[in-house]
Structure formats: structure tokens, C-alpha cells
Simulated scan of single mutants.
Amino acid sequence: MLERSLIQSTGFRNFGPVGARDGFEVRLRIPNYHGTRLSLFDGVDVTVDGEKFPYEQNRLRIRDEVYGLAELREAVDKRWGMFEWASVLVLKTGGLTPGVHRVAVTARVRYCYFPPEMHVFPVNAERIATIVMS
């Protein structure tokens, strides 16, 4: 079961080999009132403890498939279902230090029924999350 909050309380962790972490991930629920095509999801800005990681560089993992921004925009036949979670993968050499962090995200959602000049709608969330020692 997913939590109501955009940023889920589980799934905040470093990834990559122990001792040489590649980055960290933040688990999200869909920032929408229904499922959507991945091509209408335009990435996620992530900020941790004031350090910003822009959506153009972050990747989205859903159902063990990883998408960069260009792949998301082309994924017209793939969907993010309402009851599925996804992880934003953020590249940061060494990952995050173990401990408590302030995490903020801005998910960028597009709606096909709005004109292009009003096309991207930001959905913001913030929470305190903890990286544990592995």
C-alpha cells in the first residue's frame, strides 16, 4: 500500500557498491489523481539538505526499468499506474552520508489536454528521511 505523501517513507537509500556509492534514490507515488503515460511525466527535481539535483540529470526507475529524461519523453506506450511506486535515481558520487536529511522534490507532470504554454505542472513535496548504514 502506498502512503498519501508523494515522497514515500521507505525507499530512501544509497545505491551502488558499498564503499563506492553511485548516488541515492527517493521513492515516490504518482503525483497525479490517476495513472499516466510515462511520456507525460517530465522528471523530478530533488533537493537534499539544500543541495539541488535538477530533473534533466535524474533518472526514474519503475518496474525495474530505468528512464532518463529523453527516454521518458519517448515512452508513449509505458504507463505509471496509480498503485505503483517509482524511484528517482540521483547520481552523487559516494551517495549521502548516513543520518537524517531534509528531502524535497518537484515532480513535473504534463497533461495532454492543456495547451503547450501551460503544459508542465509542478507537484511539490518535502519530508525528513533517514539514510541508514549498510
Rank of each mutant, 00 (worst) to 15 (best):
E65F: 06
R108Q: 09
F15T: 02
A104H: 15
W80R: 01
L40A: 05
T93I: 10
V103Q: 02
F114H: 01
C112A: 11
E117Y: 13
H101S: 01
V103N: 01
V18N: 08
E56H: 05
A20M: 11
Y67I: 02
G43Y: 03
R59D: 00
Q57R: 11
F15P: 12
D64G: 08
R108H: 14
L60Y: 14
R61A: 09
G95R: 01
A75E: 02
E3S: 15
V100A: 15
F24G: 01
L2H: 06
G16P: 10
R21G: 00
S9E: 14
F15H: 03
R61D: 01
D49G: 09
L72Y: 05
P54R: 06
C112Y: 14
V46N: 04
G35S: 12
E56C: 02
Q57T: 13
L40V: 07
G68Y: 01
G95K: 00
S134D: 15
E65K: 15
G94I: 11
P31M: 05
I131E: 02
D77T: 15
D42K: 14
G99S: 11
S5C: 07
V46Q: 05
G19L: 13
G35F: 10
R13Q: 15
P31F: 00
W80M: 00
M1Q: 05
L69Q: 05
E117H: 10
R4S: 10
Q8K: 11
L60T: 04
P31L: 04
S39E: 14
E71H: 12
D22E: 09
M82A: 15
T97S: 09
